[in-house]
């Protein structure tokens, strides 16, 4: 309860420091594995952004934007993991990302027939001079996929 009240305080006494510093930005990539001890080779970006959006699509998203808001929440979870908070919060963020990846798998066009396990990693993107630098900063646990279509 005390922890939840601590979470409430920034809402009642906000800092309003939006975009004060443009920090390195995490990307969530995942890999499907058939065996638990398999080394992941192919990494997929979670819900990549579209190449282009029309103005009409942007207007529609003003009222209905659940996927994008979920993606932003997952970025927050990734930032929490990278910030290395208490183990309980880190575990919560890892669980949130894993279960949301698992939920979108059926609607992806990935071959799920041999997929039994899932792992995600966090890639931190930042600018170094004129170049963008990509650095892998975190590997999740390997999560068994329990799906309705599997025995």
């Amino acid at each position: 309860m005390l922890h939840t009240l601590k979470l409430l305080l920034p809402a009642l006494l906000p800092s309003w420091n939006f975009f004060d510093v443009i920090a390195p930005s995490p990307r969530i990539q995942f890999s499907l594995l058939s065996k638990k001890d398999e080394t992941p080779e192919e990494w997929q970006e979670f819900r990549p952004r579209p190449a282009k959006l029309t103005f009409i699509q942007m207007l529609k998203r003003l009222l209905w934007n659940p996927k994008w808001n979920e993606s932003l929440f997952m970025v927050s979870c990734a930032e929490r993991i990278i910030a290395q908070p208490a183990q309980r919060i880190q575990q919560h963020s890892e669980d949130e990302i894993l279960k949301r990846i698992i939920r979108i798998l059926p609607e992806s066009n990935l071959n799920l027939a041999t997929a039994n396990y899932l792992q995600f990693r966090l890639v931190l993107v930042q600018r170094q001079g004129e170049q963008l630098q990509h650095e892998i900063v975190f590997y999740s646990r390997i999560q068994a996929l329990i799906r309705d279509d599997k025995p």
Partner: peptide, 19 residues
């Protein structure tokens, strides 16, 4: 909801909602 997501789901928008 703060407890469920261990913080705001949608950052400043959630905080402004609570305020």
């Amino acid at each position: 909801i703060l407890h469920r997501f261990q913080g705001p789901y949608n950052g400043g928008a959630d905080r402004m909602s609570l305020l």
